[in-house]
């Protein structure tokens, strides 16, 4: 049945592509979480009226985040080729796509983290201060746990955007479902392969959304 629907599909090649897409997505999510939380926290705590208020740091981080968030991803990949070559040694393959994926999505996530942190009731932070908590204790015991649902829903949104980014990276040789759809599907005129790749991407996105919603709901005790 499947064979008659998708006559040009090479199943082991498809599986390979799915794995590559998952590889790029998972590694870049992990790096984005770490980098995004650090940047988001930095934005939050250095903002006006907060614990480590510092105009210069805030402005610098904010500018960097805004710049990288504004560059279209496909252009960002090209701009980062020199950096990628230094870091990975090549500009082709799934691993070579990682720097661009991370640089493209971490600033986006950082903003979501900042928004999530800003939603924490100022009174709760004040209460922690009144109990004699240090700034680091406030970060670890108040800011991060209290914003966890926002951090989790933010990473879900970011992860889905990342799947899209991996497909774009695929067009210029990162491998994965993007490469499959473009090289095997579009360039060879096998529209069934393009559709099959799309279906796989959709399934990945749905699963990510489901897991993300589930975790967010579990974390949210409000």
């Amino acid at each position: 049945m499947l064979h008659s629907l998708f006559p040009n599909a090479d199943w082991s090649e498809l599986w390979q592509a799915v794995l590559q897409t998952l590889y790029m997505t998972v590694i870049s999510i992990a790096a984005t979480v770490i980098l995004g939380i650090i940047l988001g926290l930095l934005l939050f705590v250095t903002a006006k009226g907060n614990m480590f208020e510092n105009k210069i740091v805030y402005k610098c981080v904010s500018a960097v985040v805004n710049i990288f968030r504004s560059i279209p991803f496909i252009i960002l990949i090209i701009l980062l080729i020199p950096l990628t070559t230094i870091l990975v040694g090549t500009m082709l393959g799934s691993t070579a796509a990682l720097p661009a994926l991370i640089v493209g999505s971490a600033p986006f996530y950082a903003r979501l983290v900042e928004i999530g942190l800003r939603e924490i009731d100022k009174g709760v932070i004040e209460a922690a201060q009144a109990m004699g908590a240090s700034k680091w204790q406030i970060i670890w015991k108040v800011l991060l746990p209290e914003s966890l649902p926002a951090l989790s829903s933010g990473i879900t949104v970011t992860a889905i955007a990342l799947v899209g980014f991996t497909a774009m990276a695929g067009v210029i040789g990162a491998g994965g479902l993007g490469t499959l759809a473009y090289n095997e599907g579009y360039e060879r005129g096998n529209s069934d392969v393009t559709i099959l790749s799309t279906i796989c991407i959709l399934i990945i996105v749905f699963i990510l959304q489901f897991i993300g919603d589930f975790i967010t709901k579990k974390l949210d005790k409000r």
């Binding site: 009731d121 009174g123 709760v124 004040e126 209460a127 922690a128 009144a130 109990m131 004699g132 908590a133 240090s134 204790q137 015991k141 108040v142 746990p145 209290e146 966890l148 974390l219 005790k221 409000r222």
Partner: peptide, 25 residues
């Protein structure tokens, strides 16, 4: 100190909230 709007950590249980200042100390 206690507050008009309580200012509890919603991510912690009753036990967890009461334990907070002890952890801090």
């Amino acid at each position: 100190m206690i507050f008009q709007h309580f200012n509890l950590l919603w991510s912690r249980t009753v036990k967890g909230n009461i334990s907070f200042p002890l952890e801090v100390a």
